[in-house]
Amino acid sequence: MTLALIAGRGHLPAEVAAAQAEPPLICAYEGIAPEALDVDLIFRLETLGTLLVQLGERGVTQVCFCGGIDRPTLDSSKLDAETTALVPLFQKALAAGDNGALQILKEIFEQTGFAVMGADKLVPDLVAPPGVLSEAWPDAQMRRDAARGEDVLAGLAPLDIGQACVIGKEQVLGVETMGGTDHLLSTLPPVTRSANAILCKGPKAGQIREIDMPTIGPNTLVAAHAAGLVGVVVDAGDVIILDSDRCAQVADDLGLVLWSRRGGEG
């Protein structure tokens, strides 16, 4: 066994595991259980050093971060001996934005001798291919809104706060922050329902793709519809679509547009 999954919530870890010729070692953060997988090792931020040792002892050479994990806090009373030396790096990471924190985490694993693999490299078919994936197609207004969404996400990138926004009639109705896409969709203003708005999702400039590649799944489409949106637009080649056939079917059942858009496409 040479691959370990640092598995978070959602179905992505199970999809990555199922695609491997040899079952990977499943590691989960305490209190966060991945779907449909048995966990081999449980860890906390305060025991990360011990996890690194355990991975080495088991012959692991590659790790893949997949699934959602909330930003942890550091409880110094729970530190173990193998992790104490990492505290300065933890403090630096916790004070940084998402990209900065993930870059430090990636470097910790790499400096310990592990290759950090993106889920998109292990399972290339997860990445959104270009094109309209639903029966419904984007109209002229949606195309303008998608272009506006691309500009908004590019403008948000230096702030390092999120990977998604909601656009309706070329107006910004919401942007993703630390609460994630689900929180964005559940807190949109009432005007969203009359604006034929869309969710736009794509990577930030400097995105740490190996750890935090933008992802949607069937539940994203259901939540978008519940929020009154008429479409979901993702960046082709830069977003993971979980169970893409099911996503297309859900989009069709709900009358949504599901568009994997190339940058700059009209």
Rank of each mutant, 00 (worst) to 15 (best):
P214A: 04
A146P: 01
L5C: 07
E15N: 08
E35Q: 12
A18M: 02
E22C: 02
G113E: 08
F114P: 03
I216V: 14
P88H: 08
E22G: 02
A33D: 12
C247A: 12
V257W: 00
R209P: 00
H11D: 14
E46C: 09
G49Q: 06
V166T: 01
F114T: 03
L48I: 15
M178S: 14
A236Q: 06
I104L: 13
Q163H: 14
R44F: 14
W137P: 01
A115L: 09
R58P: 02
D139L: 03
V123W: 04
T84S: 10
I69V: 15
D243R: 15
T215C: 15
I240D: 05
D212M: 08
F109L: 10
E46P: 08
E176L: 10
P13D: 08
H225E: 02
R193S: 06
D243Y: 15
D120Y: 13
R246I: 10
Y29I: 13
I32E: 14
A4D: 05
C200D: 00
G263I: 09
G264T: 03
D238Q: 15
M1W: 03
T187N: 12
G231C: 04
V127M: 12
A119K: 06
E82R: 10
R148S: 08
L133R: 11
D70E: 13
T112V: 09
G59P: 07
H225D: 04
G31Q: 10
G217I: 00
V175E: 04
L153P: 07
K92Q: 14
G155F: 08
A93N: 14
G113H: 11
I208V: 15
V132D: 04
V222A: 01
E135V: 11
G263C: 06
S244W: 11
A146N: 01
G264P: 07
D75E: 15
G174W: 10
V232W: 02
V250I: 13
C66P: 08
D151S: 11
T73S: 15
V166R: 03
L229S: 00
L25Y: 03
A95Y: 11
G237W: 12
G56C: 05
L55S: 05
H225Q: 07
N196D: 12
Q207D: 08
R44V: 11
D252K: 05
L184G: 00
R261K: 13
A95D: 13
Q62A: 07
D182N: 05
D145M: 02
L3K: 02
N196Y: 07
V63T: 07
G180D: 04
C27Y: 04
L122P: 08
A101Y: 14
L3I: 14
T84V: 13
P34Q: 13
V152I: 14
L86R: 09
A157M: 05
D252I: 06
I108E: 03
R148K: 14
V60T: 07
A17K: 01
L122Y: 04
G59L: 10
F114E: 01
V257R: 00
G56S: 07
L254V: 00
I32K: 09
V172M: 06
P34T: 13
C165G: 02
E150D: 12
E22Y: 04
